[in-house]
Simulated scan of single mutants.
Amino acid sequence: MQKITHLESSVQKNVVIELVAEEDFKVITKAKYFFNWKQEKENIVFKLRIEDADEILGLMSLKHFQHEERFEIKLLAVSKENRGKDKKYDGITENLIAFACREAVKLHAESACVSLFPKTKLKMHYVEKYGMQDAGRQVFLGGISLYRLLEKNEI
């Protein structure tokens, strides 16, 4: 079971990552999640929530490139209250990235790859915090770096 940490109490909470349902788009606002997520319906959109709770804490849009054995994270966001130094929970982004890695491994085994085009100011953050590799405009996880992230996120 994947977990996030409530920073004020240090209590770990089990999380669920599942497909976004059509009715979820009614509560996924740009004000809370920073992007117009309705535009992502052409991709596979997942939500992260605490087990036994309905509030969406994070969102991720994936596009599968079968011929490249790769998933691209098209969009990734945590809710407004879970950003920055005053965030409520830690581990939302890492759990979403690890989930994308697991999905890639399910389909492509040792050839699996997960990539994203980060905003310039976040590029080094993805490299340092999640072990992503710099590939110019993109960063990615593949091979050992992908499996290291998965190992770190196995409970």
Rank of each mutant, 00 (worst) to 15 (best):
N43A: 06
I97T: 02
E18M: 04
T93M: 01
G58C: 10
G58T: 12
D86V: 00
E42C: 02
Q138F: 11
V27I: 15
I92A: 01
K26Y: 12
T93H: 01
H67K: 09
S111W: 00
N14K: 10
K87L: 15
I92G: 00
E72R: 00
D24S: 11
K26I: 14
Y126C: 10
V15C: 10
R137E: 13
L122E: 03
K129D: 12
W37Q: 03
I56H: 02
N95G: 08
G143L: 05
S111H: 03
T120H: 02
L76Q: 03
H108V: 01
V20R: 06
S61H: 06
E40S: 08
E68F: 07
E42W: 01
V114H: 08
D54A: 08
R49F: 08
A77I: 05
Y33G: 14
S145P: 00
K85S: 11
M132K: 08
C101Y: 10
E23R: 01
S79M: 03
F117Y: 13
S79A: 14
E23H: 04
A53S: 13
S115L: 00
Y89K: 02
E18K: 07
G142C: 03
E69N: 11
E40P: 00
L146D: 11
T93I: 02
E94Y: 07
E94P: 06
A98V: 02
I56M: 02
E69S: 12
K74L: 01
F71M: 02
M132A: 15
K88R: 12
F46Y: 15
V45R: 00
I44C: 09
F140T: 04
S79V: 06
C113I: 13
I56L: 02
L116D: 08
V45H: 00
T120A: 09
L59V: 05
V78D: 10
F117A: 13
K119F: 06
D90Q: 12
E18A: 13
I144K: 06
E42L: 01
L57V: 07
K88W: 08
D24R: 05
G91S: 14
V45S: 02
K41R: 11
V11D: 15
K121Y: 14
L116N: 06
I28N: 03
V139G: 02
E40Q: 07
A104D: 09
T29I: 09
I92L: 00
E110G: 05
E69K: 08
Y130F: 15
E18V: 06
K88L: 14
I50D: 10
D134G: 05
I144L: 04
A53G: 06
A109K: 13
M60I: 15
I50K: 06
L76T: 04
Y130M: 11
I17R: 04
F71Q: 01
F117V: 14
S145E: 09
L19H: 12
D24H: 09
K30W: 13
V114Q: 07
L96F: 03
S115H: 00
F46A: 06
S79D: 14
E22G: 13
E110V: 09
D52Q: 09
